[in-house]
Write a protein that binds this DNA or RNA. Structure first.
Lengths: 120, 120
DNA sequence: TCGATATTTCCACTATTATCGAATTATCGA
DNA sequence: TCGATAATTCGATAATAGTGGAAATATCGA
């Protein structure tokens, strides 16, 4: 991931409604959430929410599929992983000795338990 | 970290000059970088850069100390860790089965090698 | 086909953010 | 104390982003 793409992704998340929508979709998983339900939860009018969802989509953070009259949005985990990797790269690679605290994040998030090839 | 603080941090990073400055400071470590040198590297006039550094400071992502006539800026690793933890929390806690890819980030970033209490 | 539902696109308006020159503040060395 | 250097604050302007109503598009069930 390059700086422009990272800036686009960060900008997409840098809005209360969009961050809220994105977190909702992360939690929802593959099932996704229809646009209307997101709008209701977030408290946004349909047209505004649609704009927000477009921004998140262009940033590579969410995707969508049509299901009947609804359009189901889902988190794009690959896009999110790319962004996190980009943000973590300099911390860990550039200054390895300040990386330990970041590992705690992975632990706190129960990440290591899911590792196929455990650390070390 | 709450949504408003996360949005502030994300907004702070969602600008090419600010993201560039922040990454420079992450790499520079405790030594930090004087404002003027950041401006030169980023290619920004002093007043504009100063505005950017203020935004990053308010977001809790960098700090500064005066050294003679220079003001030395440094990354605030705690602030960055809080932001990353916030972004990762939903991915890992809410949907543990999609967390494995995120662990790869920690590995790719050589994080696990630095762990005092290795995963598992 | 028609009416209802779900969502997007378009458009105008408002609000926020970005930029940079000029003036100001702080520090240093002579 | 003075001139030079480093940086910030101020203020005006330019650029971008956010918002929501109205119209358009797509789908469904009758």
């Amino acid at each position: 991931m390059q700086i422009p793409a990272a800036v686009e992704a960060l900008s997409a998340l840098a809005h209360p409604s969009r961050l809220g929508a994105f977190r909702m979709l992360i939690r929802a998983g593959e099932a996704g959430v229809p646009a209307g339900e997101i709008a209701r939860e977030i408290g946004a009018v349909p047209s505004t929410l649609s704009t927000h969802l477009t921004i998140l989509t262009h940033a590579g953070l969410i995707r969508s599929r049509r299901e009947g009259r609804s359009i189901i949005y889902l988190a794009d985990y690959d896009g999110m992983r790319d962004l996190l990797a980009f943000l973590m790269a300099d911390c860990c690679a550039g200054r390895p000795e300040i990386c330990a605290p970041l590992s705690d994040i992975a632990q706190a998030a129960a990440c290591c338990a899911a590792l196929e090839t455990p650390c070390g």
